[in-house]
Design a protein around this nucleic acid. Sequence first.
DNA 1: CATCTGAGAAAACGCCCGTTCTCCCACGGT
DNA 2: ACCGTGGGAGAACGGGCGTTTTCTCAGATG
Lengths: 185, 185
Amino acid sequence: MDAIRTASGVPLKRLYQIFPSKNSLIEAYLRRRDARWLRNLAEYVDTYDAPEQRVLAVFDWLFLWFNEPDFRGCGFINAFGELGATSQEVADIAKAHKDAFRRCLADLVAAADAPAWLTDQLVLLAEGAMTTAAISGSPEPARHARDAARVLLPVAHAAASPLPEQAVALAHNPAPVSPGGTTTR
Amino acid sequence: MDAIRTASGVPLKRLYQIFPSKNSLIEAYLRRRDARWLRNLAEYVDTYDAPEQRVLAVFDWLFLWFNEPDFRGCGFINAFGELGATSQEVADIAKAHKDAFRRCLADLVAAADAPAWLTDQLVLLAEGAMTTAAISGSPEPARHARDAARVLLPVAHAAASPLPEQAVALAHNPAPVSPGGTTTR
DNA sequence: CATCTGAGAAAACGCCCGTTCTCCCACGGT
DNA sequence: ACCGTGGGAGAACGGGCGTTTTCTCAGATG
């Protein structure tokens, strides 16, 4: 609080007029961050035209983000880990943010004529890249996620195309895989 | 502190004899958790024999973990988000834990005759599943991660096998993908 | 039996920090 | 010029909590 007062120059009195409590300030901050983050991502993706490129652009953008000097991981993941157990409001905002990100990705996946289940897989790659980049302190996870997406995208696309034999062939390709578990959801 | 005292029944005095400060207690807790987590994972994986199944078993185990009633996400990710910026010690423990997990996965990948770079991709799927499961409150991300791994594993295996044409065929399968960026790192 | 040691229980301290209160000045109306 | 209002700056309050201290007593020792 005092640090914010000092940094912003806004007197404490006014601060409490605008935000009745510290929590409400945090929530407002997270909401603002949510909007800006999604907007920046969308703007970057929009510099590409080809649907497949637009999907992969998400991971290129992550790489740029991870390279920012003050990158400290996804603020929503951090906030959820710290406050999610005590503040339902913060938990909800984090959940809403991740849902919005998922919808964004789902749109890109749909535009690339890939099946919807690819979305969930790409979300995991992106989220995993965020936490791994934060903890390891390296931007490389974005590249690894992109590499994985480059594999998953065509496979998913083939699975959705009118030639299902391709998907089947890919599914149990050379190496036989565990019997349990369904492939789509 | 007081809650720990109450819950454990250990008097505060003795607590401070064993752990000079709250931080040292937290660090000890994280170290113990680190060992237990990796041991549980290894024990579960060891119930399988086939190398490919052992890789996928990691995600089955994640599913079991996510279904535990008090699952609140990966404690190391949470601790890093909350304390990583202020406590170098906590940051190091989190990093060490994730490194150990990565090594565990790398061994499984090597045993399945898959190239090393698959490890990084599986790590991202697992980490992403942890955070997504925590925030969404659902265990399903484990299944999605497993589905993705089921696709990546045979492709990677094929890429490492002495028939590189398969990998190339898979790489630019039906849908051409973004020109920029290298495939392996 | 007297005494000393060490552990247990809980009160007390001190600090941090979110929140509120007080003081003071500048400005606008009459 | 006088006075009331509103906003700025910082001190002050209060609770929470990590840490320390005090008090007491059980058991061992000479």
